[in-house]
Computed example of a mutant assay.
Amino acid sequence: MQSLTGISSDRVPSVSSNPCCLIVEDQVLIALSIEAYLEEAGYDVVGPMISSADALEWLRTHTPQVAILDYSLKDGACTELAGKLVRRQIPFMVYSGHPRRPDIAPEFAAAPWVMKPCTREEILSTLQTLTHRPSAP
């Protein structure tokens, strides 16, 4: 399985006290920007993964503390992936260019929905709320 950057997504961040965040985003520049933001803020990052299928495969043997999902990926809407995260009680946010629709699948009901583009601070603030982590210095 390959991540967006060509690095094996089977890698697991080394044991640390930092929360692990799974990034599922198929747009290279956006994914790499998010990855850089999170690493600078003290998160361990897995991915970016470019499809729900890749993320679901990784989740078979790993558990992040939080995830960022693009709603619309190369292999379609990430509804199945969102459902898996909900069942495993892994908090996630949706970072999408699509607005939240009133008829959105119930898997997304409790997830914060952040519209692209947004500021780095908005992404980090949303993740900090999901992980109950204090703001980075």
Rank of each mutant, 00 (worst) to 15 (best):
R60H: 00
W58P: 11
R133C: 09
S33L: 02
G42H: 03
L32M: 05
S33T: 05
Y37F: 08
I123L: 13
Y95W: 06
K116D: 03
P48E: 03
W113Y: 04
L56G: 04
P13L: 08
D75I: 09
S72M: 06
I68W: 02
L32V: 08
R11N: 10
R100L: 15
I68M: 03
M49K: 08
L32Q: 10
E57Q: 09
A53L: 02
R100N: 13
C118F: 07
Y37M: 08
E35R: 12
T131D: 04
P137I: 13
Y37R: 01
C118I: 06
P19N: 00
Y37L: 07
P106K: 15
A55S: 04
S3L: 09
R120Q: 11
T119V: 10
I30Y: 09
T131F: 00
A55W: 00
P112H: 12
P64E: 03
P117I: 06
T61I: 00
I7W: 02
A36W: 05
V94E: 07
G97Y: 07
V15S: 15
Q65N: 07
L85G: 15
V24G: 12
F108M: 06
P99G: 08
L124K: 14
I90P: 12
K74S: 05
S72V: 05
L29Y: 00
L81H: 02
E107F: 15
K74P: 01
I104M: 04
A109H: 10
G47C: 09
Y37W: 15
G42M: 08
E39I: 12
R88M: 11
Y95F: 15
M49E: 06
T61S: 06
D70A: 09
S51H: 02
F92C: 06
A77K: 11
A111P: 14
R87P: 05
M1S: 15
G6Q: 00
T79E: 06
Y43A: 02
A53G: 04
T129K: 13
I30L: 14
S14A: 12
H62M: 01
V114Y: 09
E121S: 15
Q65D: 09
Y95K: 07
A109C: 02
A110M: 03
T126F: 08
V15W: 08
N18D: 15
P99F: 10
P99W: 13
R60S: 08
V94Y: 13
